[in-house]
Write a protein that binds this DNA or RNA. Structure first.
Length: 485
RNA sequence: GGCCCCAUAGUGAAGUGGUUAACACAUCAGCCUUUCACGCUGAAGACGGGGGUUCGAAUCCCCCUGGGGUCACCA
């Protein structure tokens, strides 16, 4: 009987959900759920200096929004709490002392000053300083006594010689020389554990079976193995994830701009598309399927599909995928997500919601583009008269002017400003003038929109503007042209 | 610098000794068309380099190169 799979997402409360963190959360969730297991949220706040107000809510909200529902966590409870590390202080302290008794760790009384001094002296040699293990030799009895009234940290006693190996499910078997391992600090002088200690203790106590984290922890894994062994605990399955790069060679980071989930979300990328896209950054289903709902990801996910090399975040592909999601929406649903962007253009003016949505929903990749696509609705933009001519059908300015005047005359007569009427009016113009269709439709559209490309054709643009505005703009452009010729 | 890891088109990514080396985004061309977009069709584009092993290597081994990670009282 296999143990129940349990994974945990363990962010620091920094008030920011980096896209890479989100992906880690996603994969962690998928590993649990694709095995009918539990997904746990644990907050790693052992660095007091880093605490950001409101960060917890931010994490809860983001996971809620993206659908990564956790079975246990600070706000939902569970049998393995508390789920916030700063509330587990006593647990770490007890375990650190157990380790001292077992001889796998020792208290270190070196002050930061002495360390800095030591670092300064020896750094001349090869550039990399490592703790000189001064306190390691203090007899345990004496050390225990000094702990009563001195400030100390607890350090892990690493083997001096030999090698340590560990297995990672994506990277395989990895061996490192023990001389590389520093006697790292487990418990800080403030009594809180370092990540290096807390993660081991918590993962064991919370019965985490698959430890999912970034490759930045790969080189620390042997130290964790040594810790598990010292405690006599079962070693979990390690799943180290490659980083997401902004461009080849450059890691995606907060500093390089819009690398956070909320930035994308607020720009008009759908959460489903973001999740879908990042799922494919570093993981492949082994089939050609690319569009996945979260449920489908749970179904399709396998650790085997995880990639060993870093993946570059390609905004262009995210755009495309977001467009696919938008197009797959019904017009009604599209309106719901696009509403706030469309309203930026129409403000309080009334408009036919479904009509506008229908016009937009095949043409938009990112919702925030909408105001720009419709900006001509607000007012006639400045534009170069040259674009009024339709080159392909050999229409020049003079001919365009004729088309415009004739069109204006017909449009003025219309009682009903509806598509069928507009169509028959302009088709009549085309027939009377005996010209090609674009020779009329193109100039009219440009004359009233000032744009070479618009969502929808002339009739759509005319409907968007209404009769009065259309005629007003036709007059303006006609006048400009008359003065120009 | 030491140690560890990685390496298929611009990007993601199939492929695990024998393939015309998939597929998707992007690019380019054509079709559709009243512009744009959607959609459809097609094109160009890759196994980082060098040695082995093998009848045969993108696939296995070694070296080089390139990239990444790590070496905190941060996670």
């Amino acid at each position: 009987m296999m143990k129940r799979v349990r994974t945990r997402f363990a962010p620091s409360p920094t008030g920011y959900m980096h896209i890479g963190n989100l992906r880690t959360a996603l994969y962690t969730y998928l590993i649990a759920k694709s095995n009918d297991g539990d997904f746990v949220l644990r907050i790693e706040d052992t660095d007091q200096d880093r605490y950001v107000e409101g960060a917890l809510e931010f994490i809860y909200d983001t996971l809620e929004l993206t659908g990564l529902k956790y079975d246990e966590g600070p706000d939902v409870g569970g049998d393995f709490g508390p789920y916030i590390q700063s509330e587990r202080k006593d647990i770490y302290k007890k375990h650190a002392h157990d380790l001292i008794e077992k001889g796998a760790a020792y208290p270190c009384f070196c002050t930061k000053d002495r360390l800095a001094e030591s670092r300064k002296e020896s750094s001349i040699k090869d550039g990399v300083w490592r703790y000189d293990r001064k306190c390691r030799e203090i007899p345990q009895e004496e050390a225990l006594a000094r702990m009563e009234n001195e400030v100390y940290v607890v350090r892990q006693k690493m083997p001096i010689e030999g090698k340590t190996s560990f297995d990672d499910i994506v990277f395989g078997h990895i061996t490192v020389p023990n001389e590389e391992l520093e006697d790292q600090i487990l418990l800080k002088a403030d009594g809180l554990p370092t990540y290096n200690f807390a993660n081991v203790v918590d993962d064991h106590l919370m019965e985490i079976t698959h430890v999912v984290r970034g490759t930045e922890y790969l080189s620390s894994a042997p130290k964790y193995n040594l810790l598990y062994e010292a405690f006599g605990w079962e070693i979990p399955t390690y799943v180290h994830l490659t980083p997401i790069m902004r461009e080849p060679g450059k890691k995606l980071s907060k500093r390089s701009g819009d690398a956070s989930f909320s930035d994308f979300y607020e720009k008009g990328y759908l959460k489903e598309a973001i999740i879908n896209y990042i799922a494919l950054l570093g993981w492949g289903p082994g089939t050609n399927q690319e569009i996945f709902t979260l449920e489908e990801l749970v179904e399709a996910f396998s650790i085997k599909g995880l990639s060993k090399s870093p993946a570059v975040f390609d905004v262009e592909k995210l755009r495309w995928m977001n467009g696919v999601y938008l197009r797959n929406l019904s017009v009604e649903d599209f309106y719901e997500v696009a509403k706030k962007y469309i309203d930026e253009i129409f403000k309080s003016k009334s408009y036919d919601k479904m009509y506008v949505s229908d016009l937009l929903h095949n043409r938009v990749d990112v919702l925030s583009e909408i105001p720009e696509m419709l900006d001509f609705v607000k007012e006639l933009p400045e534009f170069d008269l040259e674009i009024v001519q339709h080159q392909k059908s050999g229409t020049d300015l003079a001919k365009s002017l004729v088309s415009l005047k004739a069109s204006k005359a017909e449009l003025e007569k219309l009682e009903n400003w509806e598509k069928p009427e507009l169509m028959s009016a302009l088709k009549g113009v085309i027939k009377n003038l005996d010209v090609k269709t674009p020779a009329v439709l193109w100039p009219v559209r440009i004359a009233v929109s000032g744009r070479e490309s618009t969502p929808g054709g002339v009739y759509d643009v005319l409907l968007l503007l209404g009769k009065d505005e259309t005629l007003k703009r036709l007059n303006i452009t006609i006048k400009r042209m008359e003065e120009g010729i």
